[in-house]
Amino acid sequence: MSYIKLENVDLVFKVQRERRIKDIIIPGSKRFNSFDRAGEVHAIKHMDLDIQEGERLAIIGHNGAGKSTFLRMVSGIYFPTGGKLTVEGRVSGMFEFATGFEMEQNGWDNIYLRGLMLGETPKEIKEKMLEIAEFSELGDFLNMPVKYYSSGMLIRLAFSVSTAIDPDILLLDEAMAAGDAAFIQKAQQRMHDLMQKSKILILVTHNMQTAIDLCNRCIWLDRGEILMDGDPAEVTKAYMDRMLAERE
């Protein structure tokens, strides 16, 4: 049984100020940079949340609302600085696209390494390599170092690996924002397939229609807090109304 449970979870980033000898000797030399105070960013504030199996959760909100941080926290990259987070089930995620690749290595090696990073054993990932390669449609490009790939190609590669391992909990950050039309359609089909296996999906998106189409629950995050939690159609509507109201 997979689930995610947050109990009064806090996540605080410490922002390091950059201070060099020059700044001490020559006061005011940093005139154009007011960002010289050490500070904190409270990315997730006292959050309580329960996500059960079968839920497909969309997260919407402005940039900097804490959406990506939330995903990374659930995946276990950032540990909460307060409260209790319980994640039951195997997690696979896609966060940033151009990171986590060995740029000098070819596509095959990167599939292998990424698979290992997602918790596969060498044997398991080798069995899946052909299928992953086929899904990515990268063909001969897989023999080329990935530093020559376009961003769309990197996304194909990352998406193909991340979704090939049958995770219990799938985390996606704007996964379908790039890639060409044909691949987007294919990716959506695969996401639907994954969801059929009644696991948890958390999707961070700025596309309201995606949230409505793919998800059955939606939360609206603002400055680390949940402003609204409910049906995707209602939450996205409230969010859009607010956006329009702010613009006027």
């Binding site: 990259i77 990171t99 690749f101 990073m117």
Partner: peptide
């Protein structure tokens, strides 16, 4: 290793 540390749970 920043890419790995921020991208995966290794």
């Amino acid at each position: 290793a920043e890419g790995y540390i921020k991208q995966s749970t290794v």
